[in-house]
Design a protein around this nucleic acid. Structure first.
Lengths: 116, 116
DNA sequence: CATACCAGTTACCTAAAGGATGCCAGATAT
DNA sequence: ATATCTGGCATCCTTTAGGTAACTGGTATG
């Protein structure tokens, strides 16, 4: 938690950064997609299959957002049938620590809740 | 990002942990509330005012969820007018690292996006 | 006497997220 | 010749998040 000593303005600023992050990774699919792509699933249908259950509409939308946030790179080949190859960017790696912490906490939390 | 070497089952497990975490901190208000309470705002109306804009209905709901997840403690005094005092639990401190990473990343990301 | 405050609850509404289904067009595989 | 694959898009639907406004009952304040 942010230190109680910090001024209100500084804390409000931190909350805004937090909300920026939440905004980028929000929703049901962003992280699963990121992991799937990072694993080596480059094609649209492959990503769809490996995330299990996402519709084309949702996947299409999510990929666009991930691309806008520079976490995924989409190369479109003007062939027929169309070919698109998605990869995670090196910038995507800056999420490593955060994701690791989130995984850690989620794991720990599940145990904590089970102890009720 | 999770290591590409890990098996699919392990990765799926990590995704589930991730989703657990996202589930707990989701929405517009959870983190702002947590910070407000941690700052020392214990009373319902104080929290409402210091988060700026949340309605009683939303705050009531969010506090219940935070309590269920053992991040906030609600002490209800059976007086009249009713008095409730909210505090963050020590367990809430286990979020420190994660939140710090999220703040860091959000800060960095805003700059990154501005470079377009 | 009237008003405002405590901590909510209830009913109602809107916007967004997410899902289901069907379609396109050209190419390849059976 | 028929089916299947490609990366989507259009349409319709349900679910959820979140907001608005009104109200409660007892108490303290003006």
């Amino acid at each position: 938690m942010p230190d109680i000593q910090e001024g209100k303005a500084a804390i409000d600023q931190q909350i805004r950064h937090l909300q920026d992050t939440l905004y980028v990774i929000n929703g049901k699919w962003k992280l699963p997609i990121l992991v799937a792509v990072h694993q080596g699933n480059t094609r649209f249908r492959d990503i769809q299959r490996s995330t299990g259950g996402i519709t084309t509409k949702a996947l299409s939308k999510e990929l666009k957002e991930l691309e806008q946030n520079k976490l995924v790179l989409r190369k479109v080949y003007d062939t027929s049938p169309p070919r698109v190859e998605c990869t995670t960017t090196s910038y995507c790696d800056t999420l490593s620590n955060m994701i690791a912490e989130m995984i850690d906490w989620g794991k720990n939390h599940r145990n904590k809740i089970k102890e009720d």
